[in-house]
Amino acid sequence: MSAMKKYTAEGLGTFALVLFGCGAATIAGVSATGPSGLGLLGISLAFGLAVVAMAYTIGPISGCHINPAISVAMCVAGKLSAKDLIGYVIAQCIGAILGAAILYVIATGSAGFEMVPWSLGSNGWGEGYLGAYDMKSAFITEFVFTFLFLMVIFGTTAKKASPQMAGLAIGISLALIHFVAIPITGTSVNPARSIGPAIFAGGIAIQQLWLFIVAPLAGGIFAALLRKVFVDD
């Protein structure tokens, strides 16, 4: 498989994840002050099902990382080259930004839409954001749930695992993570997914973006280092 085809697949997959997941949150589901419409269950399933759909669409091409935390963890685990890591992360971030751009264009077409703090499904914490959890809770949430997410990925893609079920298991685990983490941070566990919406939301979403880069990357690296305790890969 050519490198450019893999990078394009990663960009497309991340584009779809942001458009489906953040789109559900923005248009039909949840604001920074609380859930409405689809609510927490619907938003969680939107993100999880987006991963399932993309896993079976681009998985055979690129492995369907669509998340820099996954790509970095795979590189640390020796499953992705440094060259591909750079290509994957750039493509993922571009895809996320394009997904957020399309979502912005669609959302602003509604007369009732207003760009408020943490718009377009941006991640955040603190006063005014969903459950108003503090930075400590937000960091722990993103670190721990990214760690658990990567453990699922390492386990379901191990040699003795069933490859046909990997996409479904990974998507379900992401939905489960959203069930718990949405009220705390809006759920990132994916730096690219956070970067896209934050660029358009600006303000406090940009100021808080660092946490949604650092914590997921640290959680993913921690999983890569500890995986052999739990997984025979």
Rank of each mutant, 00 (worst) to 15 (best):
T187D: 07
P60M: 03
E127T: 13
V30H: 02
G126W: 12
V30W: 09
I153D: 02
I106L: 11
G112E: 12
K79V: 00
Y88D: 00
L130A: 05
A100S: 14
E10I: 08
A158Q: 12
P68N: 12
M115G: 00
C64F: 08
L130E: 04
A100T: 04
A53V: 08
A215V: 05
E10P: 11
F139M: 10
D134C: 07
G202D: 06
F179W: 15
E10L: 11
V89M: 15
M1C: 03
R227I: 00
G87K: 10
T185S: 08
T8P: 02
K6F: 05
G131Q: 09
A101W: 13
A69C: 08
G99I: 08
S71Q: 05
A205P: 08
A101M: 13
R227Q: 15
N123Y: 07
M1I: 07
C75D: 01
M54H: 04
F154N: 04
G109Y: 12
Q208H: 14
S194A: 14
I153N: 04
K6Y: 05
L40E: 00
I90R: 02
V72T: 10
I66T: 01
A224K: 13
F222N: 03
A25E: 10
I206Q: 09
G124E: 09
R227C: 06
S122F: 05
W210V: 01
V152Q: 05
Y56C: 03
P117L: 07
I86R: 13
V116L: 11
G13P: 08
L12W: 12
V116Y: 05
K79P: 02
F143E: 05
G131I: 02
L49A: 10
A107I: 07
C93M: 15
L38N: 05
T26W: 06
Y133C: 02
W118V: 00
S122G: 06
L148W: 11
I140P: 06
I170D: 09
G128S: 05
A73C: 10
G171A: 12
F222G: 10
F20Q: 04
A16P: 04
R193L: 14
I61Q: 01
F212R: 01
G63A: 03
P191D: 05
W210S: 03
I199S: 05
A169F: 15
I90N: 00
M165F: 13
I153S: 02
S162K: 15
L98R: 05
V105C: 06
P163R: 13
V72W: 10
G220M: 09
S122I: 02
G59A: 04
A24I: 01
Y133D: 00
T108D: 11
S162H: 14
R193E: 03
T108E: 13
